[in-house]
Nucleic acid binder design. Structure first.
Length: 306
DNA sequence: TTCCAGGGGTAGA
DNA sequence: TCTACCCATGGA
């Protein structure tokens, strides 16, 4: 048994905040290295810090929706430096959108009533990854494949290329751009089974690892959405659906990913099972302005899980 | 077997 | 800008 250092960290998110509702807001919590521990109502994740130190984070909600706190238990092989502690707090805060302000969205939800009124109890935060690189790779792994295939590909990426938690080779972090770049496209295809996505993901990793592509700079909220969208669409393997999903993950909700889920849902709820013209489907959420995606998201969620 | 999934790239109009 | 056609994979 490897000896472990345990560090407790605490974060106060902007209220209202629903911890479990945020962690389980969409499929990302089901993709490694994320794990939802149903018995303890906690979320664990192996994280490789910039120092190279690989830590296990167990994250729990505390307090109430109105006075929330986030408690982080970090296990590591050696004591964490002040920089490493700060990096963990920044990463967890980003993943859970601790500081994001949803007050304008909640105000619209109160005006519209059901089903959106439920969101005002601290929902609206969609779980994301600590790096845009991880979110882009995972999003490419959702295109033109069933969800089980997405889980299979991401699991293999983590198992084969992720840095192991010391003493626990079965627990690994999401692979760094360097680790994916160091693998050949042939290996990504044959071993990770990425299929035709292999060259897309390999090229992306090579560009990020080599410094010619600074994905993380696109997290800057000062950048205009059309600029970020143009950058995203320039990534091979990212088209209209993936770009809209990634904009949502970046906290930009003015564009809805019109994928099969969207088309099937609006057809079922608003058009009596018929396929509506694109213009009419798009117009459904126009009144929500910059919050279109979240409005659609709650509409969808409430329809299938009333 | 055949189809197709929370699409996207490319060539050719 | 729009339309065919192709692309790996694995489950149904």
């Amino acid at each position: 048994m490897t000896s472990r250092e345990i560090t407790y960290l605490d974060l106060t998110p902007r209220a209202p905040f629903d911890f479990e509702g945020t962690v389980r807001s969409h499929g990302w919590v089901l993709l490694p290295p994320n794990v939802w521990n149903a018995d303890r109502r906690t979320w664990t994740r192996i994280e490789r810090l910039r120092s190279g130190n690989v830590v296990q984070l167990e994250i729990a909600g505390a307090g109430s929706v109105a006075q929330p706190r986030i408690q982080i238990t970090a296990q590591s092989a050696r004591p964490l430096s002040a920089e490493e502690r700060a990096e963990i707090l920044t990463a967890v805060g980003w993943m859970l959108r601790a500081d994001e302000d949803f007050s304008a969205f909640y105000a619209l939800c109160r005006e519209r009533g059901e089903p959106w009124i439920r969101a005002t109890q601290g929902l609206g935060r969609l779980l994301r990854s600590p790096t845009l690189f991880e979110d882009v790779v995972k999003t490419i792994c959702t295109t033109n494949i069933k969800w089980s295939g997405t889980q299979r590909m991401v699991t293999r990426l983590v198992e084969h290329l992720g840095a192991p938690f010391p003493g626990e080779p079965g627990q690994r972090a999401f692979p760094t751009p360097e680790a994916i770049a160091a693998a050949t496209p042939e290996r990504l295809r044959a071993e990770i089974r990425l299929g035709y996505r292999a060259p897309f993901i390999h090229t992306l990793a090579v560009q990020v690892a080599g410094g010619s592509l600074d994905l993380e700079a696109w997290r800057d909220p000062a950048l205009p959405t059309p600029v970020v969208k143009r950058h995203l669409l320039a990534i091979k393997g990212v088209g209209a659906y993936a770009a809209a999903s990634l904009l949502m993950l970046l906290g930009r909700y003015d564009d809805i990913a019109r994928d099969t889920v969207f088309r099937d849902f609006v057809s079922a709820k608003y058009f009596d099972g018929q396929t509506p013209p694109e213009v009419e489907a798009r117009a459904l959420y126009d009144a929500w302005g910059p919050w279109k995606f979240l409005a659609y998201w709650f509409d969808l969620w409430s329809y299938y899980e009333p």
